[in-house]
Design a protein around this nucleic acid. Structure first.
Lengths: 211, 211
DNA sequence: CGCTATAATGACTGAGCCGTCAGTTTTATT
DNA sequence: AATAAAACTGACGGCTCAGTCATTATAGCG
C-alpha cells in the first residue's frame, strides 16, 4: 500500500520538470547540473533519482511534454473551417504564440533541442516527431485547399508545409535572440507571401476579408 | 628570432580549428573534450594551449572564421546587378549552399552556435554580427529595388530581410536534421513567395526570365 | 501507540575533464 | 659541433559532476 497518492507523485515529478525547464532555458542542457535542478526545484539530490533515472531522461521528458501542447493543431486542421481561413488562422495563432513571454522558456529550451537533435538520437526522434505533427496538419489543410480550388494545384503540399515551418522556426530563433522583430509587419508579410505563392484567385478572394 | 614562420603557426592553428570543427559537428560544443580535439588534430594536449588559451576561445575562433565566408554578400549586394535579379541570385546562391555537403560541418556547428548564443554573450554577439551582415546586404537590395519601383513601397525592408533570413535558417535546420527537402521545389516556392509579397508588377516582369 | 513499508535525504564516490608545467626535442645561428 | 631559444610534449593536479546508498523521516494500519 503506497504512502503517497499518484497525484502527489505526479505533482512532484512536474515540480522537477518545471525547475529543469527554467534551468535549461537559462544555462542550456549541458551547463545545467543536477545540483542546479535540485536547488531550483527544492527536492533533494536523491529524490531527483526517484523520479528520473538519469539527467537525460529529464531532458527527454521535457521534449515529450512539448508535444502535448500541439494537439490543438489537428483539431484546427480537421475542423470545418475553410482551408484558406484555416491556414491563415494557424499562421495567426503561431504568430501570437511568438510574442507570448509566458512561453519564452519553452521556446529557448526548444531551440536547445534543435541543436541537441543533431547528435542525440532520442532527441532527434522526438523533435522530428513534433515537426511531423505540424507538417501533417499543414499538408492536410493545403490539400483540402487544392481540392477546393483555393490553393494552386502546382504547389507540392509537403514542400509548402516544410517551407512555412522553416519560416516560423527562423522567427522563433530570432525572437529568442532578442532581435527587434516587428511582429505585426512580419505577420502581414507572411500572409502576403502565402497568398502570393500558394493561393489561387479564388483563395485570395477568401483570404482578403480575414486580412 | 623565432624558430617557426608565421605561416607555419597559422597552419598549425588552422589544423586545430579544422579538427575542432569536425569534433563539434559530431558531438556538439559541450560533449567534445579537449582530448577529442587533440586526437582529431594530431597535436598534443599541451600544444593546444599554445595556440588557444581556452576551449571557449576555440569556439569563438570558429564563430569568427564563419564570417569570413560571407564577404561575398556585400560584393553582390552593392554590385551593378538589378536589385530584383540580385535578390533572386542571392536566394539562388544560398539555396545551392544548402545542398552542398562540403559545408555540412559548418552548418551543423552553426546551429550549435544558434543555441549557444542563447546563453553565451560572446557567441551571441558573434552570431548576431553575422546575422546583421546578411541583413544589411538584403535591406540594401530591397531599398534599391524600392527606389527603382521594382519592390513594393509598402514593404518594410528590415522586416522583409529578417523574414527571408528566418526562412533560410529554418531550411538549414531541416537539412541538418536529414529531412527530405526537395530543394528544387523549395527554391521555386521561395521565388514565388518573394515575387508575390515583395515585387511590384515591374519587379515581377524582371524576375520572370530568371525563373 | 508501536510496526512496517514507502519516501526522502545529503554526504559521498569514482569517473572524467580542463588546463599546467617540468622536462624533451627541434631549429637557427655561431 | 655547440649553444640557446623556441616549440612541443604528455603525465598529472585540482576540480566538477552524475549518480548512489546508508540512514532518517513519514504515513497508514491494527
Amino acid at each position: 500500500m503506497p504512502k503517497t497518492s499518484q497525484a502527489q507523485k505526479d505533482a512532484r515529478r512536474q515540480q522537477i520538470l518545471d525547475a529543469a525547464l527554467r534551468c535549461f532555458s537559462r544555462d542550456g542542457f549541458h551547463a545545467t547540473t543536477t545540483a542546479d535542478i535540485v536547488r531550483e526545484s527544492g527536492v533533494s539530490q536523491g529524490s531527483l533519482y526517484l523520479y528520473f533515472t538519469t539527467k537525460d531522461e529529464i531532458i527527454a521528458a521535457l521534449a515529450d511534454d512539448r508535444h502535448q501542447g500541439e494537439a490543438f493543431l489537428n483539431a484546427l486542421a480537421e475542423s470545418e473551417h475553410d482551408p484558406v481561413q484555416g491556414l491563415l488562422l494557424l499562421i495567426e495563432l503561431y504568430g501570437q504564440g511568438l510574442g507570448d513571454p509566458q512561453r519564452m522558456d519553452m521556446r529557448r529550451v526548444g531551440i536547445q533541442g534543435w541543436a541537441e537533435a543533431l547528435r542525440n538520437p532520442a532527441i532527434h526522434a522526438s523533435v522530428l516527431e513534433g515537426h511531423a505533427a505540424i507538417r501533417v496538419a499543414l499538408t492536410g489543410l493545403i490539400e483540402r485547399g487544392q481540392a477546393a480550388g483555393e490553393v494552386r494545384a502546382d504547389v507540392d503540399p509537403d514542400t509548402a508545409a516544410r517551407t512555412l515551418i522553416a519560416l516560423f522556426q527562423g522567427l522563433v530563433l530570432q525572437m529568442a535572440w532578442d532581435e527587434p522583430l516587428d511582429l505585426a509587419a512580419t505577420g502581414r508579410l507572411v500572409r502576403e507571401m502565402v497568398g502570393g505563392a500558394l493561393f489561387t484567385e479564388a483563395g485570395r478572394a477568401i483570404a482578403q476579408p480575414a486580412a
